[in-house]
Design a protein around this nucleic acid. Structure first.
Lengths: 159, 159
DNA sequence: CCCATTTCAGCTATACTGATATGA
DNA sequence: CTCATATCAGTAGAGCTGAAATGG
């Protein structure tokens, strides 16, 4: 029994394509999106990242959240509208700089984040099912290095 | 000097997010898409896969191409319209089954494919820049196993 | 004046769904 | 009548751009 359903999977692609890291990343990402779409609702896969950032770093402006997670300022507006409507975050004008909204995670938001943690772990488990723990760590480490190289330090805190 | 330009890179994301394979795959895929978008024109990253499939397996129906590469039947129509307009493929009704179009790569298509090969290699090189050859092979092999597991054999020919 | 922040309106490319016409 | 094939129309989310409104 296969846990993740795939819509239009490739069947025997040509050599040239089968060895391309960029192609494999695209395929793997579609699979990962499906497994995480089951954990969160569809469409809202970035909610987890935003709540996790607010939990780990405390109240932040929208610009700070976007910068931290690589989410566009525009997309954050609708996302925070949803999280705010669900009472998972509060959005209040910053008294010290009234251009800013200070976004704060609520108690309900913390609960929701913890509930999602289990679902997220399960999604990663499904995605990486064919790999043993050491191989999973290797894959994650290699991907972190690729991302860090191009983003200039996305995998480790910078001074 | 960084070769690949990135629009909204994450800066110091939270622990919970930084270790997620699904998140890393998304980040790496955006980087890979940018590097390949430089090799092909933007928008047409699947052209290479289609031409490679026709080169390796010979003339095929559109349904066969889509099945092989995991491309939706609908999206193939516009793609082949473009490739046909550029004279890189020929599309002729199959005399033995007139529902089908037999798609054949042209000489110009072969030339174009070979020209793209170099650009594609360069794009992979940029994407995997921080990894040595052994690490690149490891990453590709791990991704192939993940993809194969969920697609049921996407990384190796099946009988 | 210039710059930062939020918000909105819209654009493009991707992955997909559903319906239709034609033919095996 | 059924199934397969190709085509078209249209949907939904992701990533992004440009401009307006407000304020430092």
């Amino acid at each position: 029994m296969r846990e993740i359903e795939v819509g239009t999977p490739p069947v025997n692609p040509p050599e040239r394509v089968r060895r391309l890291a960029s192609w494999l990343l695209n395929q793997a990402r579609v699979i990962g999106n499906r497994s995480t779409a089951a954990a969160f609702g569809p469409g809202n896969r970035t909610d987890y990242a935003v709540l996790a950032a607010l939990q780990e770093f405390g109240p932040s402006s929208q610009a700070a959240i976007g910068l931290r997670l690589g989410i566009d300022r525009s997309d954050l507006v609708a996302l925070l509208n949803r999280l705010g409507a669900a009472e998972l975050v509060r959005r209040a004008p910053d008294p010290s700089d009234r251009r800013r909204n200070t976004v704060t995670i609520t108690t309900a938001g913390r609960d929701h984040l913890e509930a999602m943690d289990a679902a997220v772990d399960h999604a990663q488990d499904q995605l990486l099912a064919p790999l043993d723990p050491a191989e999973r760590a290797t894959l994650v480490a290699l991907l972190q290095r690729v991302v860090a190289h191009h983003h200039g330090g996305g995998d480790a805190p910078r001074p």
